[in-house]
Simulated scan of single mutants.
Amino acid sequence: MSSDDRDDEEPHEQRTSELLGAALGGAARRVGLDPAENASTQKVVWSAMGGWRGVFESVLPSLAFVILFTVKPEPLILSLGVSVGLAAVFTVVRLAQKSPPSAALGGLIAAGAAAALALWTGRGADNFVPGLITNAVYGTAFLVSALIGWSLIGIAAGFLMGEATAWRADKRKRRAFRLLGIAWAALFFARLAVQLPLYLTDQVTALGTLKLIMGLPLFAPLIAVTWLVVRALYPRESPQTTASRS
């Protein structure tokens, strides 16, 4: 490959990372994950989880499905209907409170698609297929991006902190973002490794239970670690330091 070809590829990679950074950074900012803001770790984690409403929205539909399916597997539409119904109620509440439509409808569409697949196949375990696919896709994306030196976390942090792709020239930041990317990939692949065998053996109750256990309880600590690392890489200047420079 000639030097001209490499020069052409580098701007293309930067443009792609800028677009991806804007998307990831915007999403992070909407859920309260902005390293530029002065917020406590506890507040950031709670905001990323969506507060009590976010916890209920994440847990109750799946919990209702698991309980009802365990008590009464047939008809399948009963447990699926209650699960989707709860997701619909949460969606209506969000829309009534004028939350962004994408945030309000995303969970309902995912729940509806999963339920439709389970009804079509007649297998309760298929209600968890979208989650398995999501873990596989996210895990692959985080791992590959980290290994090739374009960590998704670094791209998002670079956008939020206004340095674009300059972090790639900093060995300390590049290494930290690579390790964070691998850690997030490990979380998604761990979920897949535990849940996929249960899906293949049709152990619906165990699958649903472990999905809940490996959900927010593992997500929250990793969010906290990510936040602390990024804040350490981008320390906020004290008012005295800023004044002395002006």
Rank of each mutant, 00 (worst) to 15 (best):
T209W: 13
Y234D: 07
V229T: 13
F219W: 10
I213E: 06
K211D: 10
L222F: 02
L233A: 12
L233T: 03
G208R: 02
R231M: 04
T201Q: 15
V225A: 13
T209F: 13
M214T: 07
Y234I: 01
W227D: 15
P217W: 06
Q203L: 07
S238R: 14
P217F: 05
P235C: 09
Y199M: 07
A232E: 11
L222G: 02
L216E: 11
A232M: 08
L200P: 00
D202A: 09
L216Q: 13
P235Q: 12
E237I: 02
T209I: 14
V229P: 01
R231C: 13
T209V: 15
L200S: 04
P217N: 08
W227H: 12
A224P: 03
R236H: 15
T201N: 14
L210P: 01
A232R: 15
Y199E: 09
V225S: 05
L228V: 08
Y199D: 05
P221Q: 12
L216N: 05
L233N: 07
V230A: 04
P217Q: 09
I213F: 01
I223V: 15
L233I: 07
V230E: 10
W227P: 00
A224N: 08
T209N: 08
A224T: 01
G215C: 07
A220Y: 06
T205E: 11
S238I: 02
L210S: 02
L218M: 14
L210G: 04
L222H: 03
A232T: 11
T205G: 02
G208Y: 06
S238P: 00
G208N: 10
T201L: 08
P235F: 04
T226I: 07
I213L: 14
T226P: 05
L216A: 14
D202I: 00
W227A: 08
L216V: 10
L200T: 08
T205C: 01
L228Q: 15
G215H: 03
E237Q: 14
E237P: 00
Y234Q: 04
I223Y: 04
Y234E: 12
V229D: 09
V225W: 09
Y234G: 02
P217D: 08
V229S: 09
F219M: 10
P221L: 04
P221S: 07
P217S: 06
L210V: 03
Y199H: 14
A206V: 01
Y199W: 14
K211Q: 12
A232C: 05
A224I: 00
A220L: 05
G208V: 03
P235D: 10
L233Y: 05
W227M: 03
